[in-house]
């Protein structure tokens, strides 16, 4: 993954080009892959991910934890990264009279798909 902080055109979760610095794609409203580090380990860029077909942005690494789906049943499960992933409301619910808001979920690596 190349890192050219703040210079390259940004790309939204649906592949549209968006102006540098935009948070949401002006064309489709989905989150934009931003080079801003936002606390990601090692200055990594924000990473676009998909969960259940919805594109979101990894904003922060929360840490590492056992997958609750298994751990809760006492099953052996290794720790895996947990991310705070932000989803734009339009990605989740479509356009709304209320404008755009963000829903942030803490998600385990196993839940994420590549967009």
């Amino acid at each position: 993954m190349t890192e050219v902080a703040g210079q390259e055109p940004t790309i939204c979760g649906r592949g549209h080009h968006a102006p540098v610095g935009s948070k949401f794609c002006p064309e489709c409203g989905s989150p934009v892959d931003s080079p801003a580090a936002n606390g990601l380990a090692g200055g990594a860029r924000r990473r676009l991910v998909m969960v259940g077909g919805v594109v979101g942005v990894v904003e922060t690494v929360r840490g590492a934890d056992r997958l609750p789906d298994r751990a809760t049943y006492g099953l052996e499960t290794p720790r895996e990264p947990v991310y705070s992933v932000a989803f734009a409301s339009r990605e989740l619910w479509g356009p709304s009279d209320e404008g755009v808001w963000t829903v942030a979920l803490d998600l385990w690596e196993s839940y994420l798909e590549a967009p």
Partner: peptide
Amino acid sequence: RIWDSSAEV
């Protein structure tokens, strides 16, 4: 910004 809590966070 809506933050969805979980058993962990």
